[in-house]
Each structure stands twice: as C-alpha cells, then as structure tokens.
C-alpha cells in the first residue's frame, strides 16, 4: 500500500516536472533575483557592491520616478472609463436583433484591431496623425478646420492620441467579455418582464445592467491591471514625449536598466511596480475574477 503511494507521487512528479522546471526558473526565481538585485549596485556587465536599501530611498526622492509613476497612473485613469463604457456600448450594438451576419461583422470589426501587433498599430497611428500630410488632419481640414493639429508633439494632444489609439486597439477584448455576458442572460427574464408590460428601457435598467455587474467588476480589474503595464505603444508612438510628458514607469525602468546600465536601480523600481500589481491582482482574485471563476 505504501509502495502504491510512493509510486503515485513519483508518477505525478514526472508529469509535473517539465512545467515545474520552466515555472521555477522563469517565473518564481526572477522574483527573488529581483529582490537581490535591488539591494546591489548592478550594471549590465557585473554585480557591484551591496548597498542595502539605498536604491529604494533614492527612488523616493527621484522626481523622474514619481513623474513616470504618475504618467502610468494618469494613463490608467484616462483610459479605464472609456475602456469600459465604450466596450459596453459596442457589445450592445453587436448584440442587436438583426441578421447574424451583420452581428458577426460588427463583432469582428470591433475586435480585429486587437489581433494586430503593437508595432503595426503604432506606426499606423504615427502616420495617420502626422501634421500636414496625415490623413486625420487632412480629414479635419477638409471639414473646414484650416489649422494643423499637432497630435504627437503637444502634451495634451499626445495623451489624447495615446489613449485614443489604445482604445481602438484593445477595447475589443472587453467588448467580447460583455457580449458573452449579455448572451448568458436567460431569455425568460425578458419574457417575464414583457408579460408584465415593462418598456425596453425598464428592461435594460433592471435586467440587463444588473446582470452585467459581475462581469463589469472582472473587466474593471483586468483593465486596470493591464493598463498599469502600459509601455510599448507609448514608446513607439511618442517615445515618452514630448520631453518626458507621457513616459510611463516601465519605459523609465527600461531606460535606467538598458540605456544608463543601472540594473540595480531598475530592479528596485520594478519591485515597486511588482508590489502595486500584486495588490491589484489580490483584489482581483478576491472579487472572484479570472481564476476564481475557473477553480
């Protein structure tokens, strides 16, 4: 009997081993390695001396750290409402009662930018938003507004452009989540309401919206988590500019590590980011999103 227990342990171990190795080396070990690095002077070439908490203390007085952390937060605040409201509107439109061909077309159109590479969407945006020759300005001009809009070189416009491009690129994910949830609402809820003589608006307000609350919570948290990791599209579209007006935290971490070769400091900042994201995902798990639904 005891033999059997051991045999099963060994067998399970063999099945688990491949995943366990890659998981330990590339997911778990970096957490500890990062902590170690944040306590050392560390260049791209070599490990320097132990400096204790000094990189963390200098981080708190580094205005560039704070401004890039603020930029990331600002991006989250700017983009999240649109990411949710627009996604809901698109899902409602993609769920209207017309032929299934049109519905599939609408759903596909809203979702298709999400599958394009960040590099592709960034360069489409850069070229469409050029002053003088870009098609967005051309359209605005032909509508009668004769001036040039400097989409990427004015700080306010740069933020609008980045948020707009990100909305276009990724809102389709949230739209699909809303859409699935809409289609999961049992038909008899509506039938019963209809028999009771409810108007369409009443049905929307007291059936559809309440039924969407759980998924909205999941989307909100997934969205905040994803937006906090913003990097590539900003790097490619504005390079954090004009100046450092749109530079997010991950770009500052990258610049510290790979342009100024201060990996130790970059690791300390990564740890702050790690902590923020960890707190957010604990929130997410507790509210039953993502994994919670599956287990």
């Amino acid at each position: 009997m005891k033999n059997q227990v051991w045999r099963n342990d060994l067998l399970a171990g063999l099945f688990l081993l491949p995943f366990f190795i890659v998981y330990m080396v590339f997911t778990i070990f970096p957490i500890f390695k990062g902590l170690q690095m944040s306590f050392f002077e560390w260049t791209l070439i070599e490990q320097g001396e132990f400096v204790g908490f000094s990189q963390y203390t200098s981080l708190f007085t580094d205005p560039d750290f704070w401004s890039s952390l603020w930029n990331t937060t600002f991006f989250v605040l700017l983009s999240t409402p649109g990411m949710i409201i627009l996604a809901l509107i698109l899902a409602l439109l993609a769920n209207i009662n017309v032929g299934s061909k049109l519905r599939t077309f609408l759903r596909g159109s809203y979702f298709i930018p999400s599958i394009l590479s960040v590099s592709v969407i960034s360069y489409i945006a850069i070229f469409m938003l050029q002053p003088y020759s870009g098609i967005v300005n051309n359209i605005i001009n032909s509508l009668g507004y004769e001036q040039q809009v400097f989409w990427l070189t004015n700080p306010t416009m740069a933020w609008i452009s980045i948020v707009g491009v990100t909305l276009w690129w990724t809102v389709g994910f949230n739209m699909i989540l809303f859409l699935t949830s809409l289609q999961d609402i049992p038909d008899n809820y509506y039938e019963a309401a209809e028999i009771d003589g409810a108007t369409r608006w009443q049905m929307f307000k007291s059936i559809t919206l309440p039924q969407l609350v759980p998924i909205s919570r999941v989307i909100l948290l997934l969205q905040v988590l994803a937006s906090f990791k913003v990097f590539a599209q900003i790097l490619l579209i504005t390079d954090g500019g004009p100046g450092t007006a749109t530079r997010p935290l991950i770009q500052y971490i990258y610049e510290m590590g790979f342009e100024r070769y201060d990996l130790g400091y970059a690791a300390a900042m990564s740890y702050v980011l790690f902590f923020i994201l960890l707190v957010l995902s604990i929130f997410q798990l507790r509210s039953g999103g993502q994994g919670g639904r599956m287990i």
């Binding site: 688990l16 995943f19 998981y23 080396v25 590339f26 997911t27 778990i28 070990f29 970096p30 957490i31 390695k33 990062g34 170690q36 690095m37 560390w42 988590l225 990791k229 990097f231 991950i250 971490i253 590590g257 990996l263 970059a266 690791a267 990564s270 740890y271 980011l273 790690f274 994201l277 960890l278 995902s281 604990i282 798990l285 993502q290 994994g291 287990i295």
Partner: peptide, 24 residues
C-alpha cells in the same frame, strides 16, 4: 499545495520581473 503554488504564478506580472529575468 502544488496547485496553489502554480496558481500564485498568475499574480506574478511578467513586466515587473523582466529585469531579473534578463539577468537569469
């Protein structure tokens, strides 16, 4: 325990461990 240990990996944001990953 092992399943929970794997689950915990979902909370590790790859972007925040990219610097040590590079070193490793």
């Amino acid at each position: 325990f092992i399943f929970l240990f794997f689950l915990a990996g979902m909370m590790v944001p790859g972007e925040a461990t990219i610097i040590p990953l590079f070193e490793i």
